[in-house]
């Protein structure tokens, strides 16, 4: 018995040895397709204009042209636009994570009249495509005199029915026993929320936070609608106007693209575990 166990264990281990060469070959070919555009962007961003339009194409620039980067900064208020994107992203993220956690906690853990009805309303909001909100949101910003301001960029994006739903699901996973124990020790609702629920749902909050960061950083339509002043634009809309100025100067356009997308790529690489689990979670449960 013990011998045969050992035998299967050994055979099992040997079965784990093969390195799947064909799988790696397929995945590497796929990876070239996925990453190639990024490498091409990087290479072009360091070329002279002449190199970029040479035939055959230049794969490695003769000497890196950092001047493309300075051109981006002189053609646009690019530093300012990066700042605008950062402010917009932080404000939306803090707003959504905070408000969604509060509301999600109430939906998951509190008994009050209208819980089910209100939650159903929140759920139905998640099904409405956000373009449907744009005209009235624009009018609200106009009415408040906020067009072409930073506030207009982030204000409507601070609230999220989806975020509330996601946080509710996370809070529901926390065992009831822990909350009951705290209650027996005399903790009130705020203490339970602050001392127990928030720390325990931190992975959920980070997942939601990273989703909101990516969505905010990349948002183009709302900024185009609400801010036309280049100094109040985020970097996504800035790239659109850069394209207007440097239609065919691809080294400059690629340098701008690279700079504009790099921050969120770094956020993704740092928090990818949380992000992927958040996506899988919302995908399976949503």
């Amino acid at each position: 018995m013990a011998d045969s166990m050992q035998l299967t264990a050994r055979r099992g281990r040997r079965r784990f040895r093969p390195r799947h060469p064909i799988a790696h070959l397929v995945l590497c070919l796929g990876a070239i397709f996925m990453v190639g555009p990024f490498l091409w962007q990087l290479s072009t961003s360091l070329q002279t204009f002449g190199e970029s339009v040479s035939v055959p194409p230049t794969f490695l620039p003769h000497s890196p042209q950092w001047s493309n980067v300075t051109t981006v900064f002189s053609a646009l208020p690019f530093g300012r636009e990066l700042m605008n994107t950062t402010v917009m992203t932080i404000a939306r993220t803090v707003g959504q994570v905070l408000f969604s956690s509060l509301a999600g906690f109430a939906f998951a853990r509190m008994r009050f009249r209208g819980n089910a009805v209100l939650f159903a309303i929140f759920l139905s909001v998640t099904m409405v495509p956000y373009q449907v909100f744009l005209l009235p949101q624009y009018q609200i910003m106009q009415g408040l005199g906020l067009l072409n301001t930073l506030t207009a960029l982030f204000l409507p994006g601070m609230f999220s029915a989806f975020g509330t739903f996601l946080m509710r699901q996370f809070f529901r996973q926390i065992p009831m026993e822990i909350e009951e124990a705290a209650r027996i020790d005399g903790a009130n609702i705020l203490q339970i929320f602050w001392r127990i629920m928030l720390p325990m749902s931190a992975p959920g909050m980070i997942a939601l936070g990273v989703l909101v960061i990516i969505w905010s950083w990349n948002d183009l339509l709302w900024p185009l609608v609400v801010n036309s002043d280049p100094r109040q634009m985020p970097v996504s809309a800035g790239l659109a106007s850069l394209q207007g100025q440097y239609t065919t100067n691809f080294p400059v356009l690629m340098a701008g693209s690279l700079l504009a997308s790099l921050p969120v790529i770094i956020v993704f690489i740092v928090f990818q575990r949380h992000l992927m689990s958040g996506i899988a979670f919302s995908g399976v449960k949503g």
Binding site: S52, N218, Q243, S261
Partner: peptide, 26 residues
């Protein structure tokens, strides 16, 4: 990570990069 990179990348940057890749002349 590599396969997921396009999902998180700024769509405006993605658009310009692919526009360059699809450029008819160069």
């Amino acid at each position: 990570t590599l396969y997921f990179l396009p999902v998180v990348t700024l769509p405006a940057a993605v658009a310009l990069t692919w526009k360059w890749l699809f450029n008819g002349d160069y």
